[in-house]
Amino acid sequence: MAAKILVVDDEVIVIKSAERVLRSEGYDVEGVLSGREAMLKLEQNNYDLVLTDLKMPEVDGITLIRWLRNVKPSIGIVIITGYPSQETIKEALELGIIDYVPKPFTPAVLSDVTKRALEWGKGEAEAEKPKEEFPPAMLSELDRVVKEHKDKPGSLIPVLQRAQEIVGYLPPFIQKRIGRGLNISPAEVHSVVSFYSFFTMKPRGDHNIRVCLGTACYVKGIEGVLDKIKGSLKINIGDTTENKKFSLEGVRCLGACGLAPVMVVDQDTYGAMTPKKALEVIGRYDSSFVGAAAKEEAEETTE
């Protein structure tokens, strides 16, 4: 069966040319002129892939992608954009897009990206596929960063930092790719990744909880807080929960000693923590967690 593709762009010319190119490849293509129409279509029909512009009046591309990830997370998304700024690409990557087509595009680029994206989507569906595969958009962004730093001395650490931002972690595959790009041996790349505590080779959960293990926090009882978090999430420092919601990290002083004991979730700092307050904070990031914690508490009391 031919793959079903929805093209969303406020310029008619883009839709027309996309339809022409992709139909000639045998795909089943539909086009709409706004984010709102796209939502209606997506609610009624099933698609394998959505190609969408980012800059559109009213409902823009990012809003559409966000909505789609919530409503039908299994549909693959590729963005078409004339403005591939680092910020929007980063945001889109975080939302889980597969790739992007820069405007203006040639027919060959469009059909290439589409083909790859559909294959990638299939791979996602089959769980037994090796995990170390990354969306093409991610890799091309990574390659761009590597290229930007290529001939600058001492650029390995900044590149690794950016790579971790883009990919989320630094598995061997990514390390090798960076090494090749910067002309540094994989062993050297690995030696740096393994030395600094900022770098991780394990994927992190949706939310990263960092608990401060500094002196002020120690004196004010961070250990009790940490034990409670470990117990409730059932993970140790350095691990990620089974449902991939939370990762737990211990850090050497966050420099917010005035608020001790301190923990940071993603980018937000929380001070004067107690075991109970810590669980409340975590609950704000995942409503199902509160339920689980409350249930546990109830079980404890009945025992």
Binding site: L213, G214, T215, A216, C217, Y218, R252, C253, G255, A256, C257, G258
Partner: peptide
Amino acid sequence: DEGDPGAFMDR
């Protein structure tokens, strides 16, 4: 690179 736990003057 203020690393001492319990120090945050540089920050």
